[in-house]
Design a protein around this nucleic acid. Structure first.
Lengths: 195, 195
DNA sequence: GCCAACATGTAATCAGTTACATGATTCG
DNA sequence: CGAATCATGTAACTGATTACATGTTGGC
C-alpha cells in the first residue's frame, strides 16, 4: 500500500498551494512525472484509495461546487493522517524487495517534506538490510555445510536428490544476498548524493 | 503465475513415480523443501490452480477411490500441458524483478527436467538483462543531461523543482541498474556453478 | 477414544486492472 | 460543433490470502 501513503504525501506537499482533488493528484502519476517512474496509479484506484483514506480518518473530503467547471471533491490531510505519514516516512522497509517500490516512494517524499530526516532514514534502512544480509550469509553457510555432508556420503538413503536441493538453495540465497548487497551500495550512493 | 507452471513442473518430475494428487503436490511447498524458499502455495490456492490447469487442458484429473485411505484426484500432464511447460522453461523473463521469483522457479525445473538446456536459458536471460541495462544507462544519461540544463539556468520558470525531480529520477535509475547488474553477475555465477 | 496425518475443497475478503459511464467546460 | 481537458466514479474480472468446513485412516 505505498500508493495510499503516496497520496498522503502529495496532499502534504500541496498544502494550501494546491487544492488536492482527485484529478489533480492523478496528474502527479502522469508520464514524465517522477512518481510515475516508480508507481502506477490509474484514476479508478486513486479514487478508491481516497475513499479508504477518508474512512480511515486520514483525510477529510469536502465538496467544492463552483461555477465555470465541474464540481469536485477537495481532500485535506487530518492531524492523524499527517501523523501516519510522518510515522511511515521514518520507518525503513523490512525486506530487500520493498526497496524497489516502497522505499523509493518514501525517498521521494522524505526529500520533499523532511530532507533533514533523510540521513537517519538512510542509516536505519542500511541497518535493516545489513541484518538481512548477515542472516542470508548464515543460511548460506548452513546450506554449504549440508551440501558437504551430502557429497561426502554418496549413498542414496531415499531422501531424494538432497545434494541438488541444497545446491539450488545456495543459488537462491546467493541471488538474495547479491540483490541486498546491491541495495546497500545504492543506499550509500544516495547518502553521498544527498550530502 | 509461476505457481501454475511450478505445478506443471512437479507433475512432469513425478511422472509415473509419484501419483500427482493435490496433497502430494502440497508437500513440495512445505517448509524445508527447496521450492518453499522461493514460492509459497497454500492448499486453497493449490487446488484452485489445479482446477484452472484442468480447464486449460494442461492437466487431466481422474478420481482415484481405493480402500485404506480417503479418495483423491490424480492429475496427469497432457501433451499440450507438457508443451506449455517446455515453452515456459525455455523463455527468459522480461524484467529484473521477475528474476527473484519466476526465474528461480524456472531454474529449479530446468535443473531437474532439462539440464542440457540450462546453458541456453542462462545465456538468453543474460541477453535480456543486458539489453535492459543498456536501456537504463541510456535513460540515466538523458536524466543527467536534463539535470545539467536545469542547473545551468537558475531561474524558476514555473515548471516546479525539476532539478530535484531529475536528481530523483537518476537515483531511481541507479537502483534499477544496480539490481540488474547484480542479477547479471549472479547469472554468470550460476553458469559457472552448473559447469 | 483421540490426535495426527491424509485429502479436498469452499467462503470471505482484499488488492488490483481494465474498461467503461457520465457529464461539464474551453478552445479551435 | 467537435475534440480535448476537467472531474468523478462504477462494473466486471482476475488474483491472492486467510480461515474455515469436511471427512478418513492409523497409531498411541
Amino acid at each position: 500500500m505505498p500508493a495510499e501513503h503516496a497520496l498522503l504525501g502529495l496532499l502534504a506537499m500541496g498544502e494550501a498551494a494546491r487544492p488536492g482533488h482527485g484529478y489533480d493528484l492523478a496528474r502527479e502519476f502522469a508520464a514524465g512525472k517522477p512518481l510515475a517512474a516508480v508507481l502506477r496509479l490509474e484514476p479508478g484506484m486513486l479514487y478508491h484509495h481516497l475513499k479508504k483514506l477518508a474512512r480511515a480518518g486520514w483525510v477529510e473530503a469536502v465538496d467544492d461546487v463552483a461555477g465555470g467547471r465541474p464540481p469536485r471533491r477537495l481532500h485535506r490531510l487530518t492531524a492523524t493522517g499527517r501523523a501516519e505519514l510522518d510515522r511511515w516516512l521514518a520507518a525503513p522497509v523490512g525486506h530487500t524487495r520493498e526497496i524497489r517500490l516502497e522505499f523509493l516512494v518514501k525517498l521521494y517524499f522524505a526529500r520533499g517534506l523532511a530532507p533533514e530526516r533523510l540521513p537517519r532514514l538512510l542509516a536505519e534502512q542500511r541497518a535493516v538490510l545489513d541484518r538481512l544480509l548477515a542472516s542470508l550469509d548464515e543460511q548460506r553457510a548452513r546450506a554449504g555445510r549440508d551440501a558437504g555432508d551430502e557429497a561426502a556420503d554418496e549413498s542414496d538413503d531415499g531422501t531424494g536428490d538432497a545434494a541438488g536441493d541444497s545446491a539450488y538453495l545456495r543459488l537462491v540465497l546467493d541471488l538474495r544476498a547479491a540483490q541486498t548487497r546491491a541495495a546497500l551500495a545504492w543506499l550509500d550512493a544516495v547518502a553521498d548524493a544527498i550530502g
